[in-house]
Amino acid sequence: MIPELDDGVSRICATYLALADRHAPGLVEGLYLQGSVALGDYRPGVSDIDFVAVTGRQPPAGTVGAIHADLRRSHRRTSFDGLYVGWDDLRRDPAQAAPGPAVHEWRVQPASRFERNLVTWHVLAQAGVAVRGPAAATLGVFTDWPALAEATRRNLVEYWTPWLRGPASGVVGLTPWATAWGALGVVRLRQTLAAGRVTSKTAAVAYALDTYDRRWHRLVNEAARLRLGGARRYRNPWRRRADLIGFLTEVLRG
Rank of each mutant, 00 (worst) to 15 (best):
G8Q: 13
R11K: 13
I12L: 15
C13W: 01
A14C: 02
A14H: 07
T15D: 15
T15N: 15
Y16R: 00
L17F: 03
L17R: 02
A18M: 05
L19S: 09
R22N: 10
H23K: 11
P25H: 11
P25E: 10
G26T: 11
L27R: 13
V28S: 02
V28I: 06
E29Y: 00
G30T: 01
G30D: 03
L31F: 03
L31T: 01
Y32S: 00
Y32V: 09
L33R: 07
L33M: 11
L33G: 09
A38Q: 06
Y42T: 08
Y42E: 05
R43A: 13
G45W: 02
V46K: 11
S47Y: 03
D50T: 03
V52K: 07
V52L: 11
A53Y: 06
A53M: 06
V54N: 01
G56E: 11
G56A: 09
R57L: 08
A61S: 13
T63A: 14
V64R: 08
V64F: 08
V64L: 07
A66L: 14
I67A: 00
H68T: 07
H68R: 06
A69W: 11
A69T: 14
A69Q: 13
D70H: 12
D70A: 15
L71A: 02
R72T: 00
S74A: 15
S74L: 11
H75M: 06
H75G: 10
H75V: 04
H75N: 11
R76C: 09
R77Y: 12
R77S: 13
R77V: 00
G82H: 08
G82P: 10
L83S: 09
L83P: 01
Y84N: 08
V85C: 12
G86W: 03
W87V: 07
D89Y: 02
R92G: 05
R92H: 13
R92T: 11
R92W: 06
R92Q: 15
D93N: 14
A95T: 09
Q96K: 07
Q96W: 00
A97I: 14
A97K: 10
A97M: 14
A97C: 15
P99C: 04
P99E: 06
P101C: 12
A102Y: 04
V103E: 07
E105Y: 13
R107H: 12
R107M: 12
V108W: 09
Q109M: 13
P110W: 05
P110S: 11
F114C: 03
E115K: 13
E115A: 14
E115Q: 14
R116V: 02
N117V: 01
N117Q: 05
L118R: 15
W121R: 08
H122P: 00
V123H: 01
L124K: 05
A125Y: 04
Q126E: 13
Q126P: 07
Q126Y: 00
Q126W: 03
A127G: 12
A127N: 14
G128V: 00
A130V: 03
V131H: 06
R132W: 03
R132H: 04
P134D: 10
A135K: 06
A137M: 05
L139T: 09
L139C: 08
G140I: 04
F142I: 06
F142S: 07
